[in-house]
């Protein structure tokens, strides 16, 4: 089945019915996912500056409300609206699969994430052209495929190929029939700009570099220990839990956190388990490229290149991969 690109806004109108529809577009000069305002979404060009993870894993999420005083009460906050995420690319779709593995599949189910995820429909679109720092193909992805999406709009040219990958997607597609026609769509031609030497073998060998202090000093020395890489990363999922009270009422919330921050591993007694930038950035790289693989069978990096685009010190995870590969294969 295929869909004429000029009919896209009609499909968006369908998707927006009784649901919050998120599409890529500009908000105050920053490309990110925003509520659809009837305008044509910005599907072309570089990917969004901010990843779509905020839609499923909000920067700040209220978990429960409490009252103190003569009696103490705690009540869970359930906030999971019906949503559609439209126009995410192969890399970002895979980042959601990473988060699914963390929050739903492995160990405990995280109710907050699971509820939002269950109420979200994801329509992914073929990558229109790689950004300057993209390398999803090196991470095993295909810019013209998103098997994890409910619906995938593939290919280039004036049509999208339309495929439903899930039951939810199939149900949705039934509403689209009047806009769908038979016919083939040529494979999308977008390819990555970078091709770092990532491989399953490297992922296994990386932890062997753990004690190579000189290697890590060189790799991590320019790092300023800000949270930019973590916050623009579509897969970074660490969070902090805190409370906010007014009088004897308040809410407990969780919010994004970054393993690069100095207080991340600060214990109440003052001890810090990773006090230096070398330890912190090493942990970040190894978590992305090795540790996560050990637990989840995939890397926690999707090759979107956002951290490379935005790192104030011009650190570059693709360059790191090549450097590590060189040392590991020596």
């Amino acid at each position: 089945m295929r869909l004429k690109k000029e009919d896209l806004n009609k499909i968006l109108a369908l998707l927006a019915k009784n649901r919050e529809l998120f599409v890529p577009g500009q908000v105050r000069g920053i490309k990110q996912f925003k509520l659809w305002d009837g305008e044509t979404p910005e599907l072309d060009g570089e990917n969004t500056v901010l990843p779509p993870k905020d839609i499923l894993f909000p920067k700040t999420e209220k978990m429960y409300a409490y009252k103190t005083g003569t009696e103490t009460e705690i009540s869970e906050i359930v906030d999971a609206p019906e949503r559609v995420i439209f126009g995410i690319r192969a890399c970002d779709m895979h980042s959601i699969e990473c988060m699914d593995s963390v929050f739903i599949r492995e160990g405990y189910e995280d109710s907050f994430y699971a509820r939002r995820r269950a109420k979200s429909l994801i329509v992914a679109v073929a990558c229109p052209g790689a950004g300057v720092n993209c390398f999803c193909e090196s991470m095993g992805l295909d810019p013209d495929a998103a098997p994890g999406a409910d619906i995938f709009l593939s290919g280039g040219g004036e049509f999208y190929g339309v495929t439903a990958n899930t039951e939810k997607g199939e149900t949705e597609l039934k509403k689209w029939t009047q806009y769908l026609t038979d016919g083939d769509v040529p494979k999308g031609e977008a390819h990555c700009s970078l091709a770092p030497a990532m491989s399953p073998e490297l992922s296994e060998k990386l932890t062997g570099l753990f004690d190579d202090d000189e290697f890590w000093q060189e790799v991590t020395e320019p790092c300023l220990q800000c949270g930019t890489c973590s916050f623009v990363c579509p897969t970074c999922y660490c969070f902090d839990i805190n409370q906010s009270s007014v009088g004897d009422e308040g809410v407990a919330f969780r919010c994004w956190d970054s393993c690069m921050f100095s207080d991340y591993n600060q214990n109440a007694g003052g001890h810090n388990t990773r006090p230096t930038k070398k330890q912190r950035l090493r942990n970040r790289y190894l978590h992305k490229l090795a540790y996560f693989n050990e637990r989840h069978g995939m890397e926690l990096c999707v090759g979107c290149g956002r951290c490379i685009n935005k790192c104030p010190a011009h650190l570059d995870i693709a360059e790191f991969i090549d450097k590590a590969a060189e040392v590991c294969h020596d």
Partner: peptide
């Protein structure tokens, strides 16, 4: 003993390599 936030291996804080102390 280490700093933990979630207790269920999600928040990321207590890892040692690929292991979570809380989990």
């Amino acid at each position: 003993e280490t700093r933990m936030k979630c207790g269920i291996g999600k928040c990321g804080r207590c890892n040692i390599g690929s292991k979570y102390v809380c989990l």
